[in-house]
Design a binder for these strands. Structure first.
Lengths: 137, 137
DNA sequence: CGGTATCCTCCCAGATACTG
DNA sequence: CAGTATCTGGGAGGATACCG
């Protein structure tokens, strides 16, 4: 069997992420972070200011929003535009790269939102009917 | 403008996740968790035993793998099959629901793996824009 | 308004040890 | 082989205060 290192050498690998040292894991972490996902989705609607973003993404704190935005900006997903005016004005928007990844994140989020009712139903056995005597797990 | 509550009422919402109390956030968390993503991807290749899974997903500990599998099983993404034989034998596989979500996760992971070189290379490849009088960091 | 800095807390997750 | 139990450190993340 061609072991992992060989597989990697071959170039066509898809399992790189499964390797501990893979740098993609950090990007994955940034994108799938608690607030990263939600910020990407929020910014899909267009350019937003800091306060708008904070209001849009429910539950996020100033610190976490700032931190998340910095990370996403470093990764080239988000663009930060500062208008040098008396009342500070900053806008955040998705870069082309950000748009791409946001669509994939969005697809996942949409699927989950759609599936959540079913999933929750399964977790909390509804009083549907009698599973007499059957104990799964 | 229709505020958030109205948007939610309208039924066609896509921003439910942006609301703090949305139960989908928990599922999202389960799916996008550090090891959840990798386990889903690993199981796309087929049924795997505990030890195989541990070897496939680089860096995961027994505890984390077990915990992740339990969560994914509770959410109905993973199916656990126990063969009652002398040397214990347990196999994990994706449920239909798990296959669906795994494909989306995989799409995201693939995109990230592909984009990682660019991201790592220059943390600002596509110059966003330079508007006069605007200071973009 | 749009942040940063500091502090503090809690949970994630790793290491270790033990069990059926 | 396939886990679970326990302990513990570090990092995620909240609260507060302050600055341009």
């Amino acid at each position: 069997m061609p072991s992992l290192s060989e597989t990697i050498q071959s170039g066509g690998l898809k399992g790189n992420l499964l390797v501990t040292q893979c740098p993609s894991r950090q990007i994955l972490k940034d994108v799938t972070s608690r607030w990263g996902v939600l910020v990407l989705i929020a910014l899909q609607t267009g350019r937003l200011r800091f306060a708008e973003l904070r209001r849009t993404v429910g539950g996020v704190s100033d610190r976490m929003l700032s931190q998340t935005l910095q990370t996403l900006e470093r990764d080239g997903f988000v663009s930060r535009t500062v208008y040098d005016v008396v009342p500070p004005h900053v806008e955040y928007s998705l870069t082309p790269r950000g748009c791409d990844v946001a669509e994939l994140v969005r697809a996942l989020a949409d699927w989950i939102e759609n599936a959540t009712p079913d999933i929750m139903a399964g977790k909390a056995p509804p009083p549907t009917e009698s599973l007499s005597g059957i104990t799964s797990d």
